[in-house]
Design a protein around this nucleic acid. Structure first.
Lengths: 208, 208
DNA sequence: CTATCGATGACACCCAGTGTCAAGCAATGC
DNA sequence: GCATTGCTTGACACTGGGTGTCATCGATAG
C-alpha cells in the first residue's frame, strides 16, 4: 500500500506540519528575537494548537537547534568515509567542511542558515542548547577517531580533545561568517581555523 | 558603625542566607537529581519563602553553576599574572591549574566540588549552563592572549581557539576526575591534557 | 458499514521565574 | 520615646514553558 518511495502519506503529512511550524517559528524568532516570541505566537501564525507544537518539538529551543541537527550527523559520517591513511587534521577538516559546503551551494538556503546561526550565537539559551548538541557530535567524532588510531577512548584524552578541537574550528568559522560570504570565503575561514589546531591534531595521533 | 572588617552586619546576614539556601539546594540536588527537586522543596528545607530564593539566585541552575563560578575568574587572573616570555602552553596550563590546586588543598572541600562537577556533567540542563559560563571565561582568556601576542582578536582565530583548547583541557580533567584522586593525580591529568594541545598552542603563537 | 489507528485540539495541570505590595526590623535623627 | 528611612521578607497574582489526558475526527482496513 506504500503510495510511493517508501514514505507513507501520513508520514509526509507529518513532515508538512513540522515544516509549517518551523517556518512560522524561524520567521518570528529571527525578526523579533527569541525571548520576545511565545509559543502561542508561533502556533497562532501557523494556525495550530499549542499542544501540537510540543508534539513535534521538545521545546522552543528545539525548533531552532534541530534546523541544524543534520550538520552533526553529516560530519560524523563524512569522517567515517575518509581514507585511513589521511592525516587526522585533513580528515577532520574535510568532515567539518561537509555541512558547510552543503550550505554554500545555493545562496538562498545558505543565507537562511546563516541567519539561524546568528540567532543561535546571539541568544544565550539557544547557544547553550547548541553546545549541548555539539557535545553529542563530539562523542561521535571521538569514537571514530579512537577507532582510527586504535586507542581506548576512556584511557586517552586525545580522541575527545581532537574532536573538541574540530568543534572549535567549526565555531570559529560560524562566528566569522559574514553576510554574502561565498563558498570560497567559507573554505578560506575553514582552512585558517584548522591551521591553528592542525599541529596538535597530527602530533598527538602517533605518540601514544 | 562598621562592626568589623569593612563588612556590614546586613552584608553578612545576606551571605548567611545565601549559604543556607545553597547548602539545602546542593544537598537535595546531589541526592535526588536535578529534575526531581523543585524550588519549593529547596525553600522548604531551608525554611524560607520561594520568592526569597529567586532574590539570591537567578535560577535553579544558577545555584549549582555559581558554586564553581570562581574557577573562571581565577583562571583569567592567573593567566594575566604569568610572565610575558612564558610559552603559551605553559601559561595556560598554570592558569587552568590554579582553581584545581585550590580544590585539591582540603580533601573535604575537594570532594564536595567533585560531586557538584559530576552533577553538572551528568545533567544536560546544568551542563549547558556550565558551557555558557565557560564561553565567558574563554572570551576573557582570549582577550588576554590577544594582548600577549599583540593580535587583533577579531581578525585572527588564534586567541579564541587557544582559549577554547584550554577549556577543552579543563573539561578533560574534570571528566576524568575520580573519587579519591589526590592533588598529584589531578596534576597528572592536567599535564596529559595539555600535552595534547600544546603543539597547537605554541606553534600558532608566532607565525601570524 | 464498522472497527481501528493516528493526529488533533481542548482542558487541566505542574513548575520556573517576575512584579508588586504590605509588613517587619534595624539604624538614624528629633 | 517616637518618627523616619532603608533594607529584607513573605504573600499573592500572573506569565510562559512543558506534560498528561481525553474526546473527536478522518483515513484506512476488513
Amino acid at each position: 500500500m506504500a503510495t510511493r518511495s517508501e514514505t507513507t502519506l501520513a508520514e509526509r503529512k507529518r513532515q508538512l506540519v513540522a515544516e509549517e511550524l518551523r517556518n512560522a517559528a524561524l520567521m518570528l524568532l529571527a525578526t523579533r528575537g527569541f525571548d520576545a516570541v511565545t509559543v502561542d505566537d508561533i502556533v497562532a501564525t501557523a494556525g495550530m494548537s499549542r499542544r501540537t507544537f510540543f508534539r513535534y518539538f521538545a521545546s522552543k529551543e528545539d525548533v531552532v537547534v534541530r534546523f541544524l541537527a543534520d550538520m552533526g550527523t553529516d560530519v560524523v559520517t563524512e569522517l567515517a568515509a575518509r581514507p585511513e591513511n589521511e592525516p587526522t587534521s585533513v580528515a577532520l577538516r574535510r568532515a567539518i567542511w561537509r555541512p558547510l559546503s552543503g550550505c554554500a551551494d545555493q545562496p538562498n538556503h545558505a543565507e537562511r542558515i546563516r541567519i539561524v546561526v546568528r540567532l543561535i550565537l546571539d541568544t544565550p539559551a539557544l547557544h547553550a542548547r547548541w553546545l549541548e548538541r555539539q557535545i553529542q557530535w563530539r562523542s561521535g567524532l571521538a569514537a571514530e577517531l579512537a577507532a582510527r588510531h586504535g586507542l581506548d577512548p576512556s584511557a586517552h584524552p586525545y580522541p575527545q580533545m581532537a574532536a573538541g578541537m574540530a568543534m572549535l574550528a567549526l565555531d570559529a568559522v560560524l562566528q566569522q561568517w559574514r553576510p554574502g560570504d561565498d563558498e570560497h570565503r567559507l573554505a578560506e575561514l575553514t582552512d585558517q581555523a584548522f591551521a591553528v589546531v592542525a599541529p596538535a591534531l597530527d602530533a598527538g595521533a602517533d605518540q601514544r
